[in-house]
């Protein structure tokens, strides 16, 4: 009798049991801190104990702060340049590897993907050595291939080279990653469609445009969204590469770095929260724009 009751109980309440640990953690470590940070962004904080309500002052200051503007510009610059290089490069590699008779495909796939196994922090450490003027691997290679540029490029000291250095490191990190996704999608494209297109006399390019690309759309959408969100959260690479500073003349600073310096160097948790909410806004806007762009793209 009791057993039966227990049995009925467990089957009835099972879903609640299954989600309850998650819900507990979710509310404590996600919902609560989110709400708290929204409130916090209206305060000026010097320590966990001393806080002062300032209304929208933090946001007001943010909007006219040149250091924040610089960080936003750097972040956008990175996101745009990085994405517009990563996606085509990944796609090109995937198409190249997807050819009918490619030898050593396993090896190539591993070779291109392996750099993704290295974490951001470690990439930054490696690159900080490889970018050394005259003695670093990258500069030596540049000097060997392009003697007119020479080996003296000051990647981490020249403001205008700060972000290109970060883009370079990021590309090494993630081109192979994108490639894996594209490869999987390419293998999913129906062979018969190709054959049909070939029979219709479609050229190589036409086949790519009308058969391959549409098949890649879901992956493309996924990679762009994930890539953009990641790009706007850029932190570790520049932070470590520039020795925990904002880079040459602040040209290596990003939104999250700015948040970090404000919240944990200067110690104003309120102001840092305000920076965080601006970041939220930016990411939400971009996601919305992308969704809308896709919808428009689907109509034609």
């Amino acid at each position: 009798m009791i057993r039966q009751k227990l049995w009925a109980l467990q089957s009835r309440y099972a879903p609640y049991f299954f989600v309850s640990p998650f819900i507990a953690l979710f509310s404590v470590f996600m919902v609560y801190p989110l709400c708290r940070s929204l409130v916090l962004s209206l305060y000026k904080a010097a320590s966990p104990r001393s806080m002062k309500f300032v209304g929208l002052d933090n946001y007001r200051f943010l909007l006219r702060d040149w250091a924040f503007r610089g960080a936003v510009i750097n972040t956008f610059y990175f996101a745009i340049v990085f994405m517009s290089l990563q996606i085509p490069l990944s796609l090109a590699l995937a198409v190249a590897l997807n050819g009918r008779r490619v030898y050593g495909r396993m090896f190539l796939r591993f070779a291109f993907f392996s750099s993704h196994l290295v974490g951001n922090v470690f990439v930054a450490i490696i690159f900080s050595m490889m970018l050394t003027p005259r003695h670093g691997l990258i500069n030596k290679a540049i000097g060997a291939v392009f003697p007119f540029i020479g080996t003296e490029t000051q990647w981490t000291a020249k403001p205008l080279l700060a972000m290109p250095a970060i883009v370079m490191a990021s590309l090494w990190l993630s081109v192979g990653y994108g490639m894996i996704y594209f490869l999987a999608a390419l293998q999913g494209v129906d062979r018969e469609l190709y054959d049909a297109a070939e029979m219709d006399g479609a050229g190589r390019w036409d086949r790519f445009r009308h058969v391959t690309l549409p098949g890649l759309k879901p992956v493309l959408r996924f990679l762009v969204l994930v890539g953009l969100i990641g790009a706007f959260q850029l932190f570790e690479l520049p932070f470590v590469l520039f020795g925990q500073t904002a880079g040459p003349a602040g040209y290596g600073s990003t939104i999250v770095m700015y948040l970090y310096f404000m919240g944990f160097d200067a110690g104003d948790a309120g102001f840092a929260s305000a920076v965080g909410w601006v970041l939220v806004l930016i990411i939400l806007l971009i996601s919305l724009l992308q969704l809308r762009g896709l919808r428009a793209g689907r109509d034609d």
């Binding site: 002062k52 500073t245 404000m262 104003d268 102001f271």
Partner: peptide
């Protein structure tokens, strides 16, 4: 007494 904005950007 709390003036975080100034020293925030470390050179």
């Amino acid at each position: 007494e709390d003036s975080p904005k100034a020293s925030a950007v470390t050179p």
